[in-house]
């Protein structure tokens, strides 16, 4: 049997909101260590990797070595509309069960339950190497969200140029060119901090459509962390409630290359 209780149900709601537009069906891989999810978008350009450690849950039980629960994202996000912001969530599945039961509670006054039919999803699992990035940028989620939204008005691609001292986001579209520079700002109020760590400068192009999709996970934490290496996928990481010990929602995006 699998049973997990999360007092802060909105965390799961935010996670599903963050990935629903990238993937239609996903597998929840449950083990005694927690919940993992890996899924690619249909065009194999981006990948979602979720890790929820048991520390994020008030109660966590998985009797088997592992369980795979296939979820349709549209249905899950529909179910989570039932979940109020202060509700706790309990997820429960029998060992050979065909459903995942969600219970949303606020105290004992209001209890809603929904049994979701599980799916058999054939998904390709990719090995993602542990990468040390040449450039790491930690910036407020609100800033990331704003940059991606504003830049999307001018073009399809955004160049991220990370150098010692700061990071430049630029777009070159039909109506003209624009750029936003964020200075390395370690000594300001926590919520405004921008930390740019550079071993070697990196400049890469990415599709704004995907970067904007990732921004939907912004409510999960205060800061987002970008990892860049030359000619490799970008990593966009949201730590759950800004605590890596609880887990993270990571996105990977393949770069675009100039002809």
């Amino acid at each position: 049997m699998f049973e997990a209780v999360l007092s802060n149900g909105s965390t799961l709601k935010k996670i599903f909101e963050g990935i629903k537009d990238l993937c239609t069906d996903v597998n929840f891989d449950v083990s005694s260590e927690g919940i993992k999810l890996q899924a690619m978008d249909s065009s194999h350009v981006s990948l979602v990797s979720l890790e929820l450690h048991t520390d994020v849950f008030e109660q966590f039980r998985c009797d088997r070595d592992s369980m795979t629960l296939g979820l349709n994202m549209k249905s899950v996000t529909q179910i989570f509309k039932i979940c109020g912001n202060d509700d706790s969530v309990t997820m429960r599945a029998e060992d050979e069960g065909e459903t995942l039961e969600f219970t949303f509670e606020k105290g004992e006054d209001r209890v809603s339950t929904f049994e979701l039919k599980l799916m058999d999803i054939d998904s390709e699992h990719l090995g993602i190497p542990d990468t040390e990035y040449q450039c790491n940028v930690k910036l407020p989620c609100s800033e990331y969200q704003r940059i991606c939204r504003d830049m999307a008005g001018f073009g399809d691609n955004m160049t991220i140029d990370c150098q010692k001292g700061g990071v430049t986001f630029s777009v070159d579209g039909e109506v003209g060119k624009g750029k936003i520079f964020l200075k390395h700002q370690p000594n300001v109020e926590e919520k405004h901090k921008v930390i740019v760590t550079v071993k070697e400068g990196v400049e890469l192009d990415f599709a704004l459509r995907y970067l904007n999709n990732f921004a939907k996970a912004a409510p999960l934490s205060d800061h987002v962390q970008l990892g860049l290496n030359s000619d490799t996928p970008l990593s966009v990481r949201f730590d759950i409630e800004d605590k890596a010990t609880l887990g993270s929602l990571k996105f990977f995006l393949a770069p675009k290359i100039k002809e």
Partner: peptide, 14 residues
């Protein structure tokens, strides 16, 4: 227009 790469050229099936 730059060419969009896919993740399959970076990550291998595990």
């Amino acid at each position: 227009q730059p060419t969009q790469l896919t993740l399959n050229s970076f990550f291998t099936p595990s």
